[in-house]
Design a protein around this nucleic acid. Structure first.
Lengths: 234, 234
DNA sequence: AACGGGGTGTGACTTTGGTTCCAGCCTCGG
DNA sequence: CCGAGGCTGGAACCAAAGTCACACCCCGTT
């Protein structure tokens, strides 16, 4: 805890190997002894607090990011400066665009920041490439991650194109609540996730409060009527 | 030619193997003899005219689609019935969502139709899976296709979110023209690609005509001032 | 030559969401 | 206890784009 915030003082901390391979990635447990040793010897680990910028658009990313704790938020920034979240990389997942850039040596097309206290293990590009070539587990892991993202992005496109802001806010709240009733989030954060402005979010929330679907306090939204909210989100 | 339109009379034609493996896919040329034989013996080929519906949302897709001629248009349909194109699969490319569904046995999340007279080779799911496991060429081909689509979709999201309709129409025309000056497309088709309505497209085009960037006739748009149009599209 | 159907042009209106601006409100630190 | 700064509420206004309702035009067919 204390060490995390210390690291944050200088952005983030790159602790060199040896670093343990996270248990979160079961497919890595099936690697051959050689591969495992190679992996153990080459990974780097990063720990950082929420809101730390990790990748900017155009950066040349050279490794695969495996998230252990916290989350990575992958987002774009429009010409007018509005942000929109493309997706989150949660514990046990990998940042796929990083993989992508790594293989094709392309510049990263989006921004990435940490959300909450986050720990990430980084596998260097050449190591990952070797593992991908020889280890079926890595191949299928890579495939799964990539195709999962594709589905998410397709769903996002459809959602933004065909649903009004109210439905999108409702969906966002439900996703964030994960079954619970309270969501700790500010209006400004919602606006940044949905690529709109804080005032508009305020207006939408006002409407939901008036209809007794939610209740709001500072930095926290409580879902009062989950079924109705789900109905809105379709 | 004649045979194509004959086939179209009953939708499309499934010609069973033996079918040659298309030259368009160089990576397939590097397969082992065994793999190549397996592939040759199992592929199916489809030929159809433009506008033939090939996959509907929710279909269970069981093969990898390799496009040889024409194109596949992958699109979504919003609740209000508006269509929007997600991407095109051109000759030498593969329909990646099909791959995806094939591996994970998920239902296909979008619609697919042919655009122009089209020929597609279909590799059955289990065959592709075996090839993916053993052939490095297939692994990297799959990876490339998937990650290419990811980049395209990210670009699409950013474009729709941050650019006005005029810029998007301009970009669409330029993409379609491919360097040439004339684009054979109706306003209605443009509207369907960009998930908007015909009237709005008409309005936008009117503006472009007034500024002498393009000229329009029935079913055909001529780009008069390419640099200015590129400027609009950013 | 008349007809019919797809493609197009256009105005008027509505809706949604973005912008501006400001006032009030929590809450943490001094 | 007070002030600063982040958070919220809300009015007024504006702009972009979707909708509705037509009239027209081009072109191949009858």
């Amino acid at each position: 805890m204390a060490s995390v915030s210390n690291r944050v003082a200088r952005g983030y901390d790159r602790r060199m190997s040896p670093a343990p391979i996270p248990d979160l990635f079961p497919s890595l447990a099936t690697l051959s002894a050689d591969s495992r040793a190679l992996l153990e010897a080459s990974v780097t680990r990063i720990a950082c607090a929420g809101g730390t910028p990790l990748v900017a658009r155009g950066d040349l990313v050279t490794g695969a990011y495996l998230v252990e704790r916290g989350a990575l938020r992958v987002y774009y920034v429009s010409a007018e400066g509005r942000e929109g979240t493309l997706y989150w990389v949660e514990p046990g997942q990998s940042c796929i665009l990083a993989l992508n850039c790594m293989f094709s040596r392309l510049a990263y097309p989006a921004w990435v920041e940490s959300e909450g206290a986050t720990e990430v293990t980084i596998v260097p590009g050449d190591v990952y490439r070797r593992l991908f070539a020889s280890e079926p587990a890595v191949q299928s892991f890579t495939f799964d991650v990539l195709s999962g993202r594709l589905f998410e992005l397709m769903a996002l496109i459809e959602e933004t194109a065909s649903q009004g802001l109210e439905a999108r806010v409702a969906a966002f709240l439900l996703r964030r609540a994960k079954g619970g009733a309270a969501v700790a989030v500010t209006q400004d954060q919602i606006a940044r996730h949905l690529a709109t402005s804080r005032e508009v979010v305020s207006r939408v929330l006002r409407g939901l409060v008036a209809r007794r679907l939610i209740a709001t306090t500072q930095g926290r939204i409580t879902i009062v009527d989950p079924p109705a909210l789900r109905g809105l989100a379709e």
